[in-house]
């Protein structure tokens, strides 16, 4: 009995999809377009935040220490900074290491000797912030610590960068919001068309004594199938489109920090499939809900 019902429901869904072929095609295309918009805007948002984050993560505060400090005092200052709000990490570069680094960057082997044995580099702490907007605040706090001679944090550039990355994030969110709204409109429109076609069918099902679940299931299944097909097409479009775009950017704009993580792309595509099926099923359920009140 249960098997018969399930078979009947599946059969009805498939027959209905076939007999209303143009409506089915229109619905599948609607889901495809909506999810392509959604998927692309998600990838766009991910990339804009990634770009913003990459730029911001390159912001560092260089804290130059007084040469008279001993090792314990340096560790105390390091801990002092580390424990402040908004500080992500503090790394120490000794003056000996600093000259070696500089020497290597010059390609020289005898810099210290050339300088007459005097190392002009101070001991340095490199501070990174959890949020770029905290950089200025942390820098001024650190400057007040005894033993700190000088603090450098890219003054002037920092403020402009924060404004720029802020905009970048808002544009990303704006694109997702606009595209989600467009998708919503498309789906709503499609449901309304569906309803006009289906109103009579539901009315008759109710009339002959069909229970709500019997009425709901074929529609739900139909919605799921439409959602799945639409999402499948959208995944192919977005997946190949993004891969192509990645190759193009890597080849021509190598400095651009793009999200090339395969796992992330898979996740987005999976979200699209899932949203497609949920969208299809929910659209069906919502569209028939008002007809199911006795």
């Amino acid at each position: 009995m249960a098997f018969d019902s399930a078979k009947y429901v599946l059969g009805q869904s498939l027959i209905s999809l076939k007999r209303n072929i143009w409506l089915s095609v229109a619905s599948i295309l609607t889901v495809m377009i909506s999810l392509t918009l959604l998927g692309s805007s998600l990838l766009f948002l991910a990339n804009t935040s990634h770009i913003a984050k990459t730029f911001e993560s390159q912001l560092e505060i260089a804290v130059f220490l007084n040469d008279k400090l001993n090792a314990d005092q340096i560790i105390a200052i390091q801990n002092n900074i580390q424990n402040r709000d908004g500080v992500a990490a503090v790394t120490f570069t000794s003056k000996d290491q600093a000259i070696i680094n500089f020497q290597e960057s010059l390609g020289s082997k005898s810099l210290l000797e050339d300088l007459g044995g005097v190392n002009p580099f101070p001991n340095k702490l490199t501070v990174t912030a959890t949020d770029a907007r905290q950089v200025q605040n942390i820098a001024s706090q650190v400057l007040g610590i005894a033993g700190v001679d000088k603090v450098r944090y890219g003054e002037g550039i920092l403020e402009k960068l924060i404004v720029f990355t802020g905009w970048l994030r808002w544009i990303g969110i704006g694109v997702v919001a606009a595209f989600s709204f467009a998708s919503f409109l498309l789906i709503t429109l499609n449901i309304k068309t569906n309803l006009n076609f289906r109103e009579k069918e539901i009315q008759i099902m109710r009339l002959v004594g069909a229970s709500n679940s019997v009425i709901r299931w074929p529609f739900l299944l139909e919605g799921l199938i439409i959602g799945l097909f639409g999402a499948g097409l959208a995944v192919i479009l977005v997946g190949t489109g993004y891969s192509w775009l990645l190759q193009y950017i890597v080849a021509t704009l190598a400095f651009m920090p793009v999200v090339a993580d395969q796992m992330f792309l898979m996740l987005v595509l999976f979200i699209m499939i899932l949203s497609g099926m949920i969208m299809g099923a929910l659209a069906s359920v919502f569209s028939i809900r008002k007809f199911l009140e006795f």
């Binding site: 018969d4 008759i204 009339l207 002959v208 019997v214």
Partner: peptide, 30 residues
């Protein structure tokens, strides 16, 4: 049983299916 002036038949179903439909939706097997 209910019948109307405007018939209310499902245009995408055959005569047989329109009648059988009333039984399927209440759980009768084929």
């Amino acid at each position: 049983g209910v019948i109307f002036q405007d018939f209310k038949l499902l245009p995408t179903k055959t005569v047989f299916e329109n009648v059988a439909f009333a039984q399927h939706v209440i759980g009768k097997n084929k």
